[in-house]
Design a protein around this nucleic acid. Structure first.
Lengths: 171, 171
DNA sequence: ACTGAAACTTCTGACGT
DNA sequence: ACGTCAGAAGTTTCAGT
């Protein structure tokens, strides 16, 4: 199989074997597993797991490790989805908006989407006052923004960043 | 020191000092920091950081550690937001839907929201065929579901689970 | 490519302040 | 509550197969 990225040479086709998959799958669930624990899980020696882990980090298959903090314990009571329509679709205006979004730590996720709005943002805040502050004092007045519509999360069924390394079984 | 949550005893008021905040903030960015690295960052000894870290894990302020995997490198090309309206709002039907959602690894996030739809799901898939499979073969035919509307992510500006431990500066 | 062992680093519990 | 210290555990490099 040839490299589909051809001339660029930037991103070579990654060859992940069953050991690599076991390692990244396990680290996805517990990012502080030791190489020895990985070795037991994968059926490999610790030194080999260390080397593979370093390679996977090098290749950015593993992009980082993060502690998950409890939003409840830390007093973040409000999650909101905010749909944003831009004032114009000029590159300059888009750039202004993206810079704004990048600066606001309360915005955890931001995407441009097919459908009604130009962007959807997911924000986490201490209370409704925080949401009001973000929407009315920061987003609405910004020159790049034409329209904002927010929905508040009533219940969180599921929240993770785990990739489905095992395939969806149909039906 | 007495428990300010009184009779419940379930969730006592957490007293996090500046050291704790530095530790969780640092671990949020790099979940594999050693206690010595934390000690250097926080201005504390390594053993003290170890003890505090264990306490924070015990108290579930830190709920876990996870490796972030590159969806690009692993061939997950499609992110979709799926708005779902249930057939009925009976407790039984909601429970059926929640069980379904819990079983599908492709669904990373699921929330019930104020506004139009009953639920919004964020799913990650290898390609549009995978999305079609999820929407048309799994969600739509399910007895709990009345209506499904999906939007595809065109561009990802930002994606993290970091809590804004520093406050939003207004304006 | 992998294992195993050696040298180094980190962790964690006991103790003293 | 904190730091120091020492034994235990984990990591990583290197030789060997």
């Amino acid at each position: 199989m040839h490299d589909p990225c051809m001339k660029t040479g930037k991103r070579r086709m990654l060859q992940l074997d069953a050991f690599d998959l076991k390692i990244i799958s396990a680290l996805q669930d517990d990012g502080r597993l030791t190489n020895q624990e990985l070795a037991d899980l994968a059926g490999l020696s610790a030194s080999q797991c260390s080397r593979r882990r370093m390679r996977l980090e090098e290749e950015k298959v593993i992009s980082g490790y993060h502690a998950d903090l409890s939003s409840e314990a830390l007093g973040f009571g409000v999650i909101a989805f905010i749909q944003v329509t831009l004032a114009t679709h000029s590159p300059d205006n888009s750039k202004r908006f993206r810079t704004l979004v990048g600066r606001i730590d309360e915005i955890q996720e931001a995407y441009s989407l097919t459908g009604d709005a130009d962007y959807v943002l997911k924000a986490v805040l201490r209370d409704l006052k925080g949401l009001s502050n973000l929407v009315n004092d920061v987003l609405m007045p910004h020159q790049s923004v034409a329209h904002v519509r927010s929905s508040i999360v009533l219940d969180r069924l599921k929240e993770s960043t785990r990739l489905p390394l095992r395939e969806l079984r149909p039906g």
